[in-house]
Write a protein that binds this DNA or RNA. Sequence first.
DNA 1: CTACCTCAACCTATCAGAAGGTAGACAATG
DNA 2: CATTGTCTACCTTCTGATAGGTTGAGGTAG
Lengths: 193, 193
Amino acid sequence: MNTALGDTAGKLVGGAAQLIMRVGYNGFSYADLSERFGIRKASIHHHFPSKVDLVVAVVEQARAGIRAQIAALEEGSPVAIDQLRFYTGYWERCIKDQSAPFCLAAVLAAELPGLPEEVAVSVRGHFADLGKWLERLLELGAKQGSVRLEASPDVEAQAFMAAVYGAMLAARAFDDPERFNVIVETLFRRIRA
Amino acid sequence: MNTALGDTAGKLVGGAAQLIMRVGYNGFSYADLSERFGIRKASIHHHFPSKVDLVVAVVEQARAGIRAQIAALEEGSPVAIDQLRFYTGYWERCIKDQSAPFCLAAVLAAELPGLPEEVAVSVRGHFADLGKWLERLLELGAKQGSVRLEASPDVEAQAFMAAVYGAMLAARAFDDPERFNVIVETLFRRIRA
DNA sequence: CTACCTCAACCTATCAGAAGGTAGACAATG
DNA sequence: CATTGTCTACCTTCTGATAGGTTGAGGTAG
């Protein structure tokens, strides 16, 4: 489905992803990537003719990665609560070691009204996917008896997602990765049967 | 304490606030304000010599407004749960009528690592204030018997804040103001005694 | 009263640098 | 030799910012 990105293109997408996580769409430029990878701006345009192309590639690569991880996860453990734990644990690690101090899509969502439409579509797609996955998981968890829901799976999934993303924002605002863990823990205290 | 802003300066701060809510720090320019208010860019520089000055003024004005509302609120109703309801109700209205579709500080927090230090300090200050207020309120609510806490007031305050801000992000990502209400409702279902 | 001074607010004109992007030459590699 | 990746060399537009001039309201000295 996705064109296998070449070596350089892959590096660029990765670098752009990190920059977007830090400073958002309008906060980074081709010049930043140029400097970081020792490559001229024009060469970046060769791989990604416009900034929109680049950022859409970044978001789509992230979404593909998530889809792959979800598939692997469903293969690995059929226990819903374990999958939820893995999901939050992933972010816990990323935030602590600062490898991905924030969800890419969240930064972009914050500035959504100012984004080029193509990018906005990708970002909204991510949240739609994530919401559906969490809904399935919570419903499954309820059936398995490991999750206790006080509202519909749909609503609970939205609340779960909001809590996780809010926790990320808090961790950034307070410059304290531990805050993410603490907030997520209250989340699980709530839904664990 | 705060210099009473002149008429024009006040309009500029208000306009900048709205722009930041939509597109963030790097997403708006003096040219945008210039066009919107029919005033030259140089005149904006007369009131706010640099962009940092302008944005700090925006954030500080917002913080002052919040402090004032909190004071009025504590005067009005000593019932903690009512104050919490008023707080979320305020955002509910703002998001629905799109007058303030997002918390200014939240957009800025999302791009924190890329902000000028002075702005970052103001933004962090806002979150510190808000966290402390919510902590006081939750503790009070527990004493009054209208709030049920499963963790320390500190932790519960962080979780409350994260949920509210996550709900805002969700409302924006799904372009659906109702989502904010739904998520906030699950929040209250949880903490109401 | 009037002539003068001051000052805030706004203007025009201009700038240097960054942003995003293009054209076309030159290697390397299959 | 055609393709792919990179380069140099530009271009245009935007951005934040400055210098210096104009206007008008308000105070004050003669």
